[in-house]
Design a protein around this nucleic acid. Structure first.
Length: 571
RNA sequence: CGGGGCGUAGCUCAGCUUGGUAGAGCGCACGGUUCGGGAUCGUGAGGCCGGAGGUUCAAAUCCUCUCGCCCCGACCA
């Protein structure tokens, strides 16, 4: 491809709204253009990279036994009502009406449509298992889109679905998909980690996320270097957290704590550790108020709490609700003497405490010297602590490491959640009818490319891992107006194309400085510079974007050297 | 949806406090000198100041309302 004929315009300056590196570089290198919040045009240079990744994804999925199809983006409400998600999905589901006022949505995912397809076509165990996928634009009306392709509202995603006769078969496909994902991310040269995850509103019994390690990642992950336990902190648990020293607990005492609302203030005032305080947070749910109890020095994992309660919505209770429920301002709630109608859930970590301190459900007062069995009401025990780096691994007890990640893939064992609702059944070899266990497998195409840039760049621009690079080789002719230089560059370009190399030929009549800066910015892995200076020595210059070290090579040796480099750097 | 902030030339921004002929840099066009790391000099094009009302002799500037965008929290590939 000749640059002069390609639609690629780089910019020196960045729009002020781009904050993270991948977003800035994608805009500066002319990969994407914003059309509205979270909605982008993939420009030719960016589209090529997305296509490269899509090709890798197709190759690995087909190898793992999946088959591609393409489902509609606009889907009828009826199917979503059948699964219950027309109500459950909430505002994130973009709903539209046609000219007859019939309801439709723009698909955020495609469980309903795929299940509808399979239930019509499949009726026998002999036809199973089935594994289908598509690569398609999805729409989720995100509360807050941000960071370019990292969190768009419309985004390119590979979504796959599998159907089975039993859980063992589902396990097989789940494993096969997990391995295919690993091969995909490895092929892209990404540093990633597979972690246990919460299933969110997709539902199902178990799931794993693929996290690309990056400072700017939106997800927090903990990992054990010893036994390789790894989990999103939304899902992570811990065991054997060191309990703080017990306090005297012969009798419970009401102590005045005027103005001390926070755990910090209370523990300072009473000269104890924050960890010896039982922190009580009141939440509102559709089933009423809930009190969540956790150690004073720690946070609550609201997702774990939501899952434990089995509720849809969970938000911190308002000031008024707290006052009405406890008779005290925010900051003085506690499990002792709390209204019995309020469900209480306590994290296992506070069970070890003895002689603990808590709010007295009256203004400016706390209890000291409390004991669970003696003083507290009915308490459910659950793991609702937000795990932090340094906490013991739940499997082996070693301290967990923490890091941030970008969630580029997420796989789920759905079980029969959708197949039951939509009556997707098959007959077994005894003529018995069963719902099909299902799996579902998502992979963010745009997000993976963004993640690759987050992991591979320097201050001058992108450093593409070869498999995702929009082009593999850049031929840069420094003075295209010089017939001799131009002819030499043309010849190299032609012979590279003949050799099947994916090459961009910067034949633009620009100053060398401009072309060098652009080359660094757009980050094509291998660069060939053809200029009068080196050509006079009978050579051209080859370099890798990663180290930019120049190698003088005779023009007729360029192709073989380039092929050598590309195969060495095959990812 | 809560909290914070921003809409002025294609892009990055100044001007607004204290109302009075709309500015700079980059980019773009033309010409000169340049030509291996975003050259330089000159000339020029380009803006109903997000939109609608209002106050005023006069509004980018003050007021009201709207729309859009960004950042921080709850969602997710």
């Amino acid at each position: 491809m000749r640059w002069s004929q390609f639609y690629l315009f780089t910019t020196r300056e960045v729009p002020s709204d781009a904050e993270v590196v991948s977003h800035r570089l994608m805009i500066r290198s002319g990969m994407i253009k914003k059309v509205a919040a979270g909605i982008y045009t993939y420009m030719p240079y960016g589209w090529r990279s997305l296509q490269k990744l899509s090709t890798i994804v197709r190759r690995e999925l087909e190898a793992a036994g999946a088959t591609e199809l393409s489902m509609p983006a606009v889907q009828p409400a009826e199917l979503w009502e059948e699964s219950g998600r027309w109500q459950e999905y909430g505002k994130e589901l973009l709903r539209i009406q046609d000219r007859h006022n019939r309801d439709f949505c723009f698909a955020p995912t495609a469980e309903e449509v795929i299940t509808d397809i399979v239930r019509r076509d499949v009726s026998s165990y002999r036809q199973l298992p089935i594994n289908l996928y598509q690569i398609q634009e999805k729409f989720r009306d995100e509360i807050r889109p941000r960071f370019g392709l990292m969190r768009g509202r419309e985004f390119l995603m590979k979504d796959g679905y599998s159907f089975h006769t039993d859980d063992a078969s589902l396990d097989d496909s789940y494993q096969a998909m997990q391995q295919a994902y690993c091969r995909i991310f490895e092929a892209c040269g990404l540093e990633y980690s597979v972690v246990e995850a919460d299933t969110g509103n997709i539902g199902g019994s178990s799931s794993h996320e693929f996290m690309v390690l990056a400072e700017t990642g939106e997800s927090a992950v903990v990992r054990c270097a010893e036994c390789h336990y790894a989990a999103n902190t939304e899902k992570a648990t811990t065991r054997g957290l060191l309990a703080p020293p017990a306090l005297p607990a012969n009798e419970r005492q009401l102590v005045p704590t005027p103005g001390a609302k926070s755990v910090e203030e209370v523990s300072t005032l009473l000269q104890i550790e924050p960890s010896q305080v039982v922190k009580t947070l009141l939440y509102e749910t559709e089933d009423g108020l809930v009190a969540a109890l956790v150690r004073g020095d720690r946070e609550i994992n609201e997702i774990a709490l939501t899952n434990h309660l089995g509720v849809q919505h969970l938000t911190l209770a308002s000031e008024e609700k707290v006052r009405a429920a406890t008779g005290a301002p925010v900051g003085y709630a506690g499990p002792v003497g709390l209204d019995e109608s309020i469900r209480q859930v306590a994290d296992s970590s506070v069970r070890e405490l003895d002689g603990w301190v808590c709010g007295a459900n009256q203004g400016d007062a706390h209890y000291t010297g409390c004991r669970w069995e003696r003083d507290a009401g009915t308490v459910e025990w659950a793991d609702i602590l937000l795990v932090e780096p340094g906490d013991p691994c739940p499997k082996c007890g070693r301290p967990l490491d923490g890091f941030r990640g970008i969630e580029v893939g997420h796989i789920f064992k759905l079980g029969t959640k959708y197949s039951e609702k939509l009556s997707c059944t098959f007959l077994d070899n005894e003529g018995q009818s069963h719902s099909m266990p299902m799996g579902c497998y998502g992979l963010g195409i745009g997000r993976t490319v963004a993640a690759a840039i987050e992991q591979n760049h320097d201050e001058d621009g992108i450093i593409w891992p070869r498999p995702l690079a929009p082009f593999e080789v850049l031929v840069n002719v420094l003075n295209p107006k010089d017939p001799e230089v131009s002819a030499a560059a043309d010849a190299i370009y032609a012979s590279l194309r003949e050799a099947g190399v994916d090459v961009l030929y910067d034949d633009r009549d620009e100053r060398p400085g401009v072309k060098f800066k652009d080359a660094d910015l757009i980050g094509i892995p291998v660069r060939i510079v053809v200029g009068g200076r080196s050509l006079a020595q009978g050579t051209v210059e080859l370099s890798h974007r990663r180290d930019r070290e120049r190698h003088a090579v005779a023009p007729d040796a360029v192709v073989s050297r380039v092929l050598e480099w590309l195969s060495a750097d095959s990812g």
